[in-house]
């Protein structure tokens, strides 16, 4: 599935919620169901700077696709990580770099998009894109 298809599916899911409580319950559910990250990746080097909660993001590259795993000590943050992984994991670096993050505004998580120190989402997206760029460069050099 293309990134845009996944993100519009996410937007439709969130559109079905009547109020903020349903939305957060869903995010919390997503947080709790986030696949476990390999403990060996929960290291300082994988910590994302600029989050009020601690977020570990690990990226693996199989030569064509990037695979992300993540964890956080806050459940809502884990839920957001789950959404981002669902959207971006399993795609080529170029696809990730070309993708839009507008869907996050559309699902109304704007409070997590504001450029404050408490927000984890922007930092996570930045990190995801940076990994994609790094793997793209690596792949190009390998050729």
């Amino acid at each position: 599935m293309k990134i845009e298809e996944t993100t519009s599916a996410i937007v439709s899911e969130f559109e079905s919620f009547d109020d903020w409580m349903d939305k957060y319950n869903y995010l919390i559910e997503l947080g709790k169901s986030l696949p476990l990250i390999d403990e060996k990746y929960k290291v300082e080097a994988n910590l994302i700077q600029g989050c009020q909660s601690r977020v570990w993001l690990h990226a693996g590259f199989d030569g064509s696709l990037v695979h992300f795993t993540a964890d956080s000590d806050a459940v809502i943050t884990k839920g957001i990580a789950n959404l981002l992984i669902r959207a971006f994991s399993g795609h080529t670096p170029q696809e990730i770099l070309d993708s839009s993050t507008e869907f996050l505004k559309e699902i109304g998580l704007t409070e997590h998009l504001s450029p404050t120190r408490s927000n984890g989402m922007l930092s996570m997206i930045k990190q995801i894109k940076m990994y994609a760029l790094a793997f793209k460069t690596k792949a190009a050099m390998g050729n």
């Binding site: 957060y24 909660s53 459940v75 943050t77 409070e111």
Partner: peptide, 12 residues
């Protein structure tokens, strides 16, 4: 409960 999680709900 992580303070960030709590704070998000308290804000709402």
């Amino acid at each position: 409960i992580h303070p960030f999680d709590a704070g998000t709900i308290i804000d709402h």
